[in-house]
Structures are given as structure tokens and as C-alpha cells.
Amino acid sequence: MRHPFCLGIESTAHTFGAAVASGEGVICSDAKAAYVPPLGRGIHPSEAAQHHNSKAHEVILEALKKSRIRPRDLDVIAFACGPGLGPCLRVGATVARALSVYLHKPLVPVNHALAHIEIACLTTGALDPLVVLVSGGHSAITAFAARRWRICGETEDITIGNLFDMFARETGLATPGGPEIERVSESGGDFIDLPYTVKGNDVAFSGLLSASLRAYGKGAALPDLCFSLQEVAFSMMAEATERALAHTEKKELLLTGGVAANKRFQSMLESVAKDHDTRFYVVDRKYGNVQSKNAESLPTSELGL
């Protein structure tokens, strides 16, 4: 019997994506279109939704074409059902439901955070990791136990992606903020003292955001500020991760989500993993944003640490 095929649709934030995957975990195609807000502005949810509306059919057709699977041969239609931006989520949900009704295929809602975790486990081969999920929509540390993903720690206010996006927007950098801040930070290096907030296994970023913007207003050099902002924010997450690792005693550490692409954060968590004798995995950049094959799976011993 052939493996079932699933069409997955994602529209949680700035990207509308569609992919076809088989039941054995092969990603047959992966198509996407991203809404890019004007410089100095963040994602406007209804504008992003309009973008998704206008691109949905192209993206889905591209995913189907590349996969060489006929629509009627699909077995399941899945969509990301949140958390995410309401107006954007609605586009994916509506399109998925329409296809499901039209093709008579079952419709499966998928939690956005679980999608991030599952694609990372599938592509890296991690079996039972402590997961660090960092993106515009999430900042959580989680582990699987007794049939559930249990949250060991998370942000108490904004996510790390929000922190970077808001900082970027206020300082005239492009959106999404993370990659821009990483790029600008490379020319900085003087450490500016900024508030560091770890509450047990939880973190909070809003005070760090306010203080960074205040420092910017007082004329701090942007490269140094980007450098320090990254240092402090990632150190907070790394500490919370270390605590969770010590407490859960997991032997694998998996970094996923859009912010997983940041090289500095990767190196910090590699260091944490090494100290705890834990294998470190990081999701491939192209699957950092939810969607669906070849990811890096590097044991720390092979990273030259």
C-alpha cells in the first residue's frame, strides 16, 4: 500500500506556505510567498491577510505541481490553526476547508508550535529532545513526557522575535528584525549594560526592549546596541535552557523556529549542550518557519568545539 499524502497549508504570520508530504516523512514539495512590510514598519495583519488571499492559489498550485501529486490523490489536508495572527490564520483555514470540502478529504488542524517541533524532529532525527522554540510567535522551552509536550519555561510577555521586530522597527531596520539585528551586530562589540530578566525557568523581554530603545534615544551606537541586545536576550534563553536541561536530564537539545537561524544563539546553545553532555540539533534554516528534508544534525563533538 502506498503512503498517504498530505497537503499542508500555513499562514500564521507573514508567509503563506503550502507543502506536500508523505506519511513516511518525505517532503515532496515546499512553496511559499512572503508579505514584506514597508521599511520601518511591522507586519500589518490585515495587509498580510490580503497578501495571502492574493497568493494562496499560486502557492498551492506550485506545491501540487512540484510534488507531482494530483489533488484527488491527496489523503489529508492539514493547516496551521494557531497560535498566530488572526486575519492571516483565517486565510489558511478557509482555503484548507474549501479544498477539504471540494476534494472530500479530511481536514486536520495542526498547532503552530507543534508543527515547528515536529518538522525539526523529522528533519534532524532527534528522538526525545528538550526543545527550544524561538520565533516571532513563540519563545518556549518544552519537553515531551507522559503523552504531552510540557512547557518547562516560556516568555512571560513578548517573544524574542517580537523583541527583535519591535526594536528593528523603532530603529529603522528592516523587518523581520532578527536577521537585520544579527547583521548590524557584527560591526559592534562594545557591551552596553541592559536588563537581564530570568524568573526561574521563565524569561521576560519587555524591560530589555524599553531599555534598549531608551539607550538608542540617548545616542548609543546601533551596532553596539544590536550586539548587546542579542547577547542579553540569548543569554537569558540559554540560561533558562540550561536550567530546563538540568532539571529534565534530556540527552538531546533541539533548536527550532525562525530565530534558530541566528548563529550567535546557535553557538551559545552548542556550548550549553556541550557542558551538559547533550547532543545538539538545529533545524535547517528553510524549515525554521513552519513547513516542511535535509536538515543539519550535528553532534557537538563534530562541531570542532
Binding site: A145, R150, K199, G200, H247
Partner: peptide, 17 residues
Amino acid sequence: GVDLHLMKRVLDSTHHF
């Protein structure tokens, strides 16, 4: 509240039974 919340979180994640 944050103090007790953390306690509860730890019990849920490591002593769920």
C-alpha cells in the same frame, strides 16, 4: 504569584503524576 506559578510549572512538567 510568579514564585508559586513556577512551583506549579515544575510540578506539572517533572512530577506530572
